[in-house]
Computed example of a mutant assay.
Amino acid sequence: MTPPISDAEIAPRARRSVIVTGAASGIGRAAALAFAAQGDRVLIADLDADGAEETVRKITATGGVALAAIGDLGEQRVVDAVVARAVAEFGGIDVLVNNAGVMDRMSAAHETDDAEWERVLRIDLTAPFLLTRAVLPHMLTVGAGCLVFTGSEAGLRGGAAGAAYTAAKHGITGLVKNLAVMYRKQGIRTNMIAPGPTATGISVDSHPDAQGPAVVTSLIGANIGRLGSADEQAAAIVWLASDAAAFINGAVLPVDDGWSAV
């Protein structure tokens, strides 16, 4: 009879280097905590210094390894600093979770001013692109890596948000698919979750008399299931970055209680 394998004979799981953006709260914080709980080293990148440091404290209090990098990821110098710190502190970057984002005001196109359009596109589409572009050379050097994006139901349909957010999240959906095709032969996988309504504390500053909110609210109210939790979204992110999802690339995974199936 074959003797049982002792714990000493089992190779320990490598501790990965993970960047999670928007991890000062909500889905990002839940994802950072989940990665850390399985032994990964996590860099929290966020504009909210207090929230980011609180996430770090939650991780280190349980013996995990985490650090915070504060700044606006829509600025190239901040992106460069985040990547440089992850490489310097952790020796490389194995996983990037592009989670940070903001909502629009649910404005229809004719109600969307330049400021709303530019802010949402810069944070929700340009910033993830900048960080991905900065991380890719490090992943290409080692021939491996996972990119996971937090998209949205608004990246799958036209009636889940305003014009700016819908355009940005459709852009993320396209970027994810392009990255998956471009880099699959270099060992880099790219996937996206598409959350349905989730309890994260994000509010929408919309005018009640505007056309956009009236249309979108009626559509969402008629079709969504229950409200999801940040932990449920984070579980999907961590799974997509795991070896269990090794053959999954270019996927858009709705995490929405069946909303996308309606």
Rank of each mutant, 00 (worst) to 15 (best):
M1S: 15
T2G: 08
P4G: 00
I5F: 08
A8H: 09
A8M: 10
A11P: 13
P12V: 07
P12L: 07
P12A: 05
A14T: 15
R15K: 14
R16H: 08
S17H: 07
V18K: 06
V18W: 05
V18S: 07
V20I: 00
T21I: 07
G22L: 11
G22K: 10
G22A: 04
A24Y: 11
A24N: 11
A24I: 14
S25T: 15
G26C: 10
I27S: 06
G28I: 04
G28E: 07
G28W: 02
A31Y: 10
A31E: 09
A32I: 05
L33V: 12
L33F: 11
A34Q: 11
F35S: 02
A36P: 13
Q38F: 02
G39V: 06
V42C: 04
A45F: 12
A49I: 04
A49L: 08
D50M: 10
G51Q: 05
G51Y: 03
V56S: 13
K58G: 08
T60S: 11
A61N: 02
G63K: 11
G64I: 04
G64W: 04
V65I: 10
L67P: 02
A68Q: 05
A69H: 02
I70M: 05
G71N: 05
G71L: 04
G71S: 08
D72P: 02
L73Y: 03
L73G: 14
L73Q: 08
E75I: 12
Q76T: 14
R77A: 13
R77Q: 12
V78I: 07
V79P: 13
V79C: 02
D80W: 03
A81K: 07
V83W: 01
A84H: 07
R85P: 00
A86Y: 01
A88S: 13
A88P: 11
A88C: 07
E89Q: 15
E89M: 12
E89G: 12
F90W: 06
G91E: 08
G92Y: 03
I93R: 01
I93A: 00
D94C: 00
D94P: 08
V95E: 00
L96N: 00
L96P: 08
A100T: 12
G101F: 05
V102H: 12
M103I: 07
D104G: 08
R105Q: 11
S107A: 15
E111P: 15
